[in-house]
Amino acid sequence: MEMKSAVAALAALAHEGRLNAFRLLVRAGRPGLPAGELARRLNVPPNTLSGNLTILSHAGLVEGRRAGKSVIYSARYGDMTRLLQFLMEDCCAGSSDICAPLRDVALACACEETEPS
């Protein structure tokens, strides 16, 4: 991942509403959630959610697809993985005890293998 893409993704996540929406979509898995359901679960007005999803989408973190009259949003797991890899790229400075807790968190993740999106 390039620095510019990482900065855009981190900037998009540096807002409580967008971070909450992204985390909810990550938990929802590949099927994602309809925009209306997402707004209800987050207790935010649809226009506020729409603005937040647009910013997350431009940052490459979420995507929407039409399903009838609804738009279903889902996390872009491949791009999320690339962002995490970018953040961890220079981890440890030769000292594995620094990153061992992060490795343990990744191994404990109940997520299934994801392919790049």
Rank of each mutant, 00 (worst) to 15 (best):
L25I: 02
L25E: 08
L25W: 02
G29W: 06
R30F: 05
R30C: 01
R30D: 02
P31E: 13
G32Y: 00
G32N: 06
G32K: 00
P34N: 03
P34C: 07
P34E: 11
P34W: 02
A35S: 15
L38H: 04
L38Q: 03
L38M: 05
A39W: 09
A39K: 07
A39N: 00
R40V: 10
R40Q: 10
R40Y: 09
R41W: 10
R41S: 05
L42G: 00
N43D: 15
V44I: 09
V44P: 02
P45K: 14
P46A: 11
P46H: 05
P46C: 00
N47S: 14
N47Y: 14
L49N: 06
L49Q: 08
L49V: 07
G51P: 04
N52M: 12
L53M: 06
L53F: 08
T54G: 08
I55R: 14
L56T: 04
L56E: 03
S57T: 15
H58A: 07
H58D: 11
H58Y: 14
H58R: 12
A59E: 05
A59D: 09
G60T: 10
G60S: 10
L61A: 08
L61T: 01
L61E: 09
V62K: 05
V62E: 09
V62A: 04
E63R: 05
E63I: 04
E63D: 11
G64Y: 12
G64A: 08
G64I: 13
R65D: 00
R65N: 06
R66T: 15
A67N: 02
A67T: 08
A67D: 08
G68N: 15
G68P: 12
S70Y: 11
V71A: 00
S74G: 02
S74E: 01
A75D: 07
A75L: 05
R76K: 14
R76M: 14
R76Q: 15
G78S: 11
G78H: 12
G78P: 14
D79E: 15
D79L: 01
M80G: 13
M80S: 08
L83S: 07
L83A: 00
L83H: 05
L84C: 10
Q85P: 00
Q85E: 11
F86N: 00
F86Q: 03
F86D: 01
F86S: 03
L87S: 01
M88A: 11
E89W: 10
E89D: 15
D90K: 06
C92R: 07
C92T: 10
C92K: 04
C92P: 00
A93Y: 09
G94M: 02
S95H: 12
S95C: 04
S95T: 10
S96E: 13
S96Q: 07
S96G: 01
S96W: 13
S96V: 14
D97G: 05
I98N: 01
A100D: 11
L102Y: 15
L102A: 14
V105G: 08
V105A: 06
V105C: 00
A106Y: 05
L107N: 13
L107I: 13
L107S: 04
A108R: 11
A108I: 04
C109H: 09
C109G: 05
C109M: 15
A110H: 09
C111S: 13
C111K: 05
C111N: 06
E112K: 06
E112I: 07
E112F: 02
E113M: 07
T114K: 09
T114Y: 03
